[in-house]
Design a protein around this nucleic acid. Structure first.
Lengths: 206, 206
DNA sequence: GTAATAGTTGACCGGTCGGTCAAGGGGAGC
DNA sequence: GCTCCCCTTGACCGACCGGTCAACTATTAC
């Protein structure tokens, strides 16, 4: 019964790209509605508040990550180390594509929002944290596979290394955004191997 | 001639801490004025716009970094590798102190603003970029010293490694903020040695 | 002392923000 | 074809945003 509509999805799509290329605070409900061709009254039919749209956008980001990274990497036939490498390549692809489309390097869609909003809204912060923990768990599964294949030492603390890899990628994305340099990820990603294959002794950092 | 005042400095101080613990967009001119005990009219006597206060805040951050990191590290008597390690320790100290003071982990004062504003205001973006390039140059000087001391291989691409270290620290700070975990930096910093002492061959990441 | 001036005050402004609502339209299910 | 309900519409709201201004005050340099 009643009529159907894809307005909700359009709002999510437009909010996703507008918030990514600018910021959460800088893009208001009205602008999102305009971009989606939806009247403001309809917006509040679907979402109780701007914050609730943000939650829906985060769900979409989580879904996209699973489809565009997890599934694609899992489909790759090859070694675990190759699959690990593929993660960085997919990221670099995404950054280059969106940079070309928007004219600016925008960093990480989730990381941007996390940095902007984590200290303001604790519910959102927990959501960001859960998303990153999912990513870390995924990276860890690749590292565990690499250990099983003998490409990494048996004693590797895959959880810690996965956390460091995730932080490293996020940092590169943030710096790429700041520098307006989409190529930074391709230049810095290769050094990630050092985080994975830690030197035996650690002369620096007790 | 005319009267003197420290209102300008108070505004910069309050804006620095409020923007750090929340965000640029979330803290308005009025709130900064209230915190500083300054009337809004006075604000615009000192700063033409909110954005100009942001530029002053960034100057202050650059100055603080020189005083609290560069000078303190330079004063350390010991090896270059020890000085490099000290950088991470000072960062961890700062994060823990501000976390205790504010009740939340707030990440990097400059990185937060850079991620929030880089795609919105290109003038600010250039300023952020310049600040990070200064930090990278500083890290590079430590790495060069380590090479000179023989602690790192002569062929080390110190510029690239410095960039990766900076990105890594920024990423950790962002993830610490998201997780609300001030200890993350202490846990992940030791792995930075892997970025510095890259494994000879690079099986992953072509 | 006095004049020139840096700093202060508080009322004020247009615009936009997130959000509300009562009424109306239109397609799906029967 | 009728009914029900999902969706749409557009006018409206109070609050707050960044920013302005003319009058005033306290200094400091001379």
């Amino acid at each position: 019964m009643g009529r159907t509509s894809d307005a909700e999805q359009r709002l999510i799509e437009e909010a996703t790209s507008l918030w990514y290329s600018r910021s959460y605070a800088d893009v208001g409900v009205s602008e999102i509605c305009d971009a989606a061709g939806v009247r403001k009254g309809s917006f509040y039919h679907f979402f109780p508040s701007k914050r609730d749209l943000a939650l829906a956008v985060l769900d979409r980001h989580a879904q996209t990550f699973r489809e565009r990274v997890v599934e694609r990497v899992a489909a790759h036939e090859g070694t675990a180390m190759e699959r690990l490498d593929l993660v960085g390549q997919i990221g670099a692809e995404f950054l280059a594509e969106t940079a070309e489309a928007t004219g600016t390097v925008c960093g990480c869609p989730v990381g941007n929002l996390a940095v902007e909003l984590s200290t303001i809204d604790d519910t959102l912060r927990r959501r960001f944290d859960a998303m990153f923990r999912e990513r870390i768990a995924f990276l860890r599964s690749l590292l565990d596979a690499a250990v099983a294949e003998g490409s990494l030492p048996a004693g590797t603390d895959t959880d810690l290394v996965a956390e460091s890899l995730n932080a490293y990628y996020e940092g590169i994305l943030a710096m790429a955004k700041t520098a307006g340099d989409a190529g930074l990820l391709r230049r810095l990603a290769p050094l990630a191997i050092g985080l994975v294959r830690a030197p035996e002794a650690a002369p620096v950092s007790s």
